[in-house]
C-alpha cells in the first residue's frame, strides 16, 4: 500500500484493512500517533487527512491511500501550537498530546480565531486523563493569537 505521510510517499506492505494507526506505528515506525481506544472515542490517534482531523484507528489504510496524511512530526516542532504547548507547560503524561495538537491544528486551520465554545466543541472528542484541559484551551488561544 502507498501512503503519503508528512509530504513523503511511503510504501507499507500491509493488508488494506489494517487501520492507518497501526500501519503508521508498526510499519512506518512513526510512533508519534498514539493508540488509546481503537474505536474513535479518545482522539489519541488523531492525524490530518487532507487537512481534516481523522481518528487513524478507525480509518483503513485502503481508505487513506491517495490522501495527504499529516502527523505530529509534520508540524515541524515549531508550529505555534507546539510553541504554545511548551510555553504553558501543558503536557503531563503527554500520551494524548499529539492527538490534542493535531485536533487543534485542524480547528485553527478552519477557524483561526475560535471562541471558548468553539474550542470546547472541537476538542470534545480528545480525552486527557491527566486533566490538562484548561492548559490545552489556553494554549490554543495563545497559538490563535500567533497564527
Amino acid at each position: 500500500m502507498k501512503l503519503n505521510v508528512n509530504g513523503k510517499g511511503r510504501m507499507a506492505d500491509v493488508d488494506p484493512d489494517m487501520p492507518l494507526l497501526w500501519a503508521i506505528r508498526d510499519h512506518l515506525h512513526l510512533p508519534g500517533t498514539k493508540y488509546g481506544c481503537g474505536i474513535a472515542q479518545c482522539g489519541a490517534c488523531t492525524v490530518l487527512v487532507d487537512g481534516h482531523a481523522v481518528r487513524s484507528c478507525s480509518m483503513s489504510v485502503a481508505d487513506a491511500q491517495g490522501s495527504q496524511i499529516t502527523r505530529i512530526e509534520g508540524l515541524g516542532g515549531d508550529h505555534p501550537l507546539q510553541v504554545a504547548w511548551l510555553k504553558l507547560q501543558v503536557a503531563q503524561c503527554g500520551y494524548c498530546q499529539s492527538g490534542q495538537i493535531m485536533q487543534a491544528a485542524a480547528l485553527l486551520a478552519a477557524n483561526p480565531k475560535p471562541t471558548e465554545e468553539d474550542i470546547e466543541l472541537a476538542m470534545a472528542g480528545n480525552i486527557c486523563r491527566c486533566g490538562t484541559y484548561q492548559r490545552i484551551k489556553a494554549a490554543i488561544k495563545e497559538a490563535a493569537g500567533a497564527v
Binding site: I72, E73, G77, W85, Q89, G94, S98
Partner: peptide
C-alpha cells in the same frame, strides 16, 4: 520533557 511530548517523541 515538554519537547518530546509535543513532537510525538
Amino acid at each position: 520533557d515538554g519537547v518530546s511530548k509535543v513532537t510525538g517523541g
